[in-house]
Design a protein around this nucleic acid. Sequence first.
DNA 1: ATTGCTGAAAGG
Length: 370
Amino acid sequence: MVESRREAGAARAQDWGDLSDSDFPDFSELGDIEELGNQPDSLSQNPKKQVNSPESWKRKRRADASTPMEKFHLGCLWVTDLSAQSWCEQQMVYGKELPGFQSEEKTAVLSAGASIHLARELELHDLVNVHISTKEDAWAVKLLNILSMVPILQSGGTIREFPVFGEVEGVFLVGIIDELHYTSKGELELAELKTRKRPMMPLEAQKEKDRFQVSLYKCIFDAMVRGQVTSASLVRHMKLSPERLLGPPVQRHAQQGGFTVKSFGDLLDLTFLSLSLSDLPVIDALKIEYSHQETDSLLGTVMVVFEEEQVRDKLRHHLDYWTGLREPQGVDVKEAWKCRMCDYAAVCTWRQNGGTRMLTEEQHAKKMAK
DNA sequence: ATTGCTGAAAGG
């Protein structure tokens, strides 16, 4: 059986590559960065700059009447946004404001991890390029991936890169589950592979972020199989048009998978019918495996205890930033070590105003020079 | 279209 899945990089760049200025984050919201040395070129090119105290942040936000969700033009949040937020909320926000701004070392480690994940996916699925022209096409490919994987899971097979989406705590979340399979005890287990540059288990802060990530996947997946995620909710949050006809390449791809669909709504109905009839169980076990990138050796396995109340409390706390109920926060002083490897340390106002004793730039430079 | 468009995750 051939599993197909979109590899959309090329298609997206072609179709949606011509973005207007309004698509890019408003750099004027960033603090006054002129006084700080070492700013990247992209920053100094921005003509409008202003001092950004917590007070002005509040006033500006009110003036715009916009929440971060609106400011970044987001209809949904990615699970990885939320787990990055768990590491450092302020860093995640800078990442949104200044996309594509990260060190080469970090990019290299990330892409090494990405290629290991891709190789693992290819063990189970073939990738098929499907040309997409609209957002309905893009969601259609996601739904077709779900449609193709549900029967495999139902018959006890293993699937990788399973898309999940749904409203949780009032916000629409989207993610991709690394792997789902049944254990020898017949339990449905989520397995998340984390590859690592250095051959050692991560610190607690990293583990906590990863536990949060897989716990969120369980929240979303469980909501899906329980019928708590509806097509109406998807259509509303993502502003989709069910009546829109799918592009011919997507219709052909669906046909190859045995699904005859013309409109996006046709596919919506099929997918939600399939989900409701398949009677999939909720996820019983959450497993994170840490492996060494270079040698591919297993460093250790963490079984995550799903604590729903804690997860939802933490999620709500994170969402309070996104829905504009509070300002973004940097890390606590005792986690200031994270700033040493943060690409935004030089421009971070949280770090500068850290009231609490963080390292000054000078101390930091000395320490780095050792 | 005086608006629309939005790949998630990759690791520290």
